[in-house]
Design a binder for these strands. Sequence first.
DNA 1: CCGCGCCTCCACCGAACGGTGGATACGCGG
DNA 2: CCGCGTATCCACCGTTCGGTGGAGGCGCGG
Lengths: 206, 206
Amino acid sequence: MIRLVIVDDHPIVRGGLRDMFADAEDIVVVGEAGDGAEGVERATALAADVVLMDLRMPGMDGVTATAALRERAPGARVLVLTTFDSESDVLPAIEAGAIGYLLKDALPDELMRAVRAAARGEPVLAPSVTRHLMGQVRRPGAGTLTDREKQVLQLVANGSSNREAAAALFIGEASIKTHLQHIYDKLGVRDRASAVAEGYRRRLLT
Amino acid sequence: MIRLVIVDDHPIVRGGLRDMFADAEDIVVVGEAGDGAEGVERATALAADVVLMDLRMPGMDGVTATAALRERAPGARVLVLTTFDSESDVLPAIEAGAIGYLLKDALPDELMRAVRAAARGEPVLAPSVTRHLMGQVRRPGAGTLTDREKQVLQLVANGSSNREAAAALFIGEASIKTHLQHIYDKLGVRDRASAVAEGYRRRLLT
DNA sequence: CCGCGCCTCCACCGAACGGTGGATACGCGG
DNA sequence: CCGCGTATCCACCGTTCGGTGGAGGCGCGG
């Protein structure tokens, strides 16, 4: 019997998942949680075999919770189930130790098979996620901005000139320009406007 | 008895909603659909009182479906239930004739009361949606880019300089600059980078 | 019919940006 | 220990951008 814990901030989604697994003979939903911290507690206390984890949640997010679970309950397999499949969601989740990554438009049947596979320790990826991963190995290092670079890009997106961004970060204007040059290189663009666009497409900006 | 039709492309969400309304004495889920076109058919054929409508769906989207339903089945009240509350989602939905707009993190109890209110013909809005509406009346006309302006903004987001954008649209560089000035005015920004950022936040860009 | 919104175009100017080629300093890991 | 990545800073230069104040044409609706 596979002991499953559901972590998602939407009551509707939790209900739908619970309902779905009610029919399964070999799976029992032993707990639910509405945010990451609660999810880590429940999954640990209830000795979960598989944890269905949403990524975007208030409080502790799914990636942080996944990493925490790898520490606290190494036996629990984390299966990410979320709406988005952008690189900036997929890569951190896998780095954090998720054994699988599915999208919420998955069919009930697929989801069921994925949970069983995860329980056996087999990795499960949605096709589009696989594509993202392949794209990643082709361009190693690219697409990952440093924290500082993300700060600069966010300021630029919010309308700061180089001088204003420099003032905001207590550094020189020249440093802002250098950071921007690195950002352009990594994102494959030539100006701040399309850097901001790429930032949104890769979900680096809010 | 309120006859309810659920339109959402995610099987999981449909299941959760169906499950939720199973307990209600005065509400019966008479049908479901996975996209807008199917939703219009079902709601019309089944004489729905209330239609729970997602906005982002493959094929016909929720806004189009809502407008179609106002034509085909004026008796059916459309209650939008979606994840996003940005102006660019809210305003078209209400213009199209939705009687309510709720977010998917609504509690089951709220959702239940909203369906009953919608059935009575009372409008129902999530609080954050109300805020968007108020912000709209304060700045009438603002926030709506013309088609041409959206084209220009998209080109800028894709890395075009003014000259390149002009070439792409077969107009003069001066016209691009004029369009951009209008865009800055409407979006309340001062440069192309933050115009692109605003474009993504308001979901004008892809 | 006349206004209004939209699209197009023009000139001028200062400020900001992008490109290049450096430099120093720090910490981490092979 | 020394390389590598990160973060900081500098100078120079040409190009682009943003701001301002125009102008004309076109279509739609009051």
